[in-house]
Amino acid sequence: MATLPASAQPRREPEQAFIENRQLDNLRPLTRRLGLPAAIRFGWLLGPFLLLVFWAAGSATGFIDSRQLPAPWVAVTTGYELIEQGRLQNHLLVSTVRAGQGLFFGVVLGVVLALLSGLSLTGGYVIDGLVQIKRAVPALALIPFFILWFGIGEYMKVMVILLGVFTPIYIHTHNALRGIDLRYVELAETLRLSYWQFIRQVVLPGAMPGFFLGLRFAVMGAWLGLVVVEQINATDGIGYMINLARNYAQADVMLVGLVLYALLGLASDCAVRLLERRSLAWRKTLAQ
């Protein structure tokens, strides 16, 4: 090793060793965490709230043209008038029943198919490819056929919604069923669980997070499907109300419909999340 001249030797003063010591009398946290800090309750409302503020401010100052987008309070007053006339609750009820029916039967269909396809290889060979094909076909392209097959009544509408609902349920539940940890399979074997005990106590509970993820997509899918079917041919429902208002250029009624869709979607997503948190209390995640 070459010897450096004495002047070039880096000389470390004794005090320097202490410079990096943390000051312990400081009240601020001494370390920085990389994960997310604790979540604030209802924190997710901040974004929607900011949008509302922007919208209100824009409307009040005239920055937003009221003919293009009425002010937020117009949605409230028009909504109130529509309720007084009895129209709003009627349309809302019809729409909710439609979405609810489509959601219910879609979830049942999605779960049944996912179980058949997830728990048996043959079932998977038969079902999985078909569902993937269905995913590739847009719902809008199917509607003309659905009208041919199911007519233009309630039946067709529920079928369209169902079609949008069952796919996410199927995909996520199937994925979770097939993704069961092999270590748990070994455990079940050493505990001599019967096949049905294994399915009921290991596979199904393990697939619940996947099912709930699918359910959140499915609930949104139900409302989206509703928009589609109610704008095509309907004599009632929120979509019909919006369509009618469009013909008469009633921007305020259209706005009420839009806000209603948003609230319904938000409320149902909250409901699913709540259900999820109750059912999956065993999970410890970053977000909780």
Partner: peptide
């Protein structure tokens, strides 16, 4: 009975339910 290197408890079952599994 088998004990593995990891405890291999089912996360969705409480402690006692894990013990009486099977």
């Amino acid at each position: 009975s088998v004990v593995f290197q990891d405890a291999r408890l089912l996360p969705w079952r409480r402690v006692l339910d894990n013990i009486v599994l099977g």
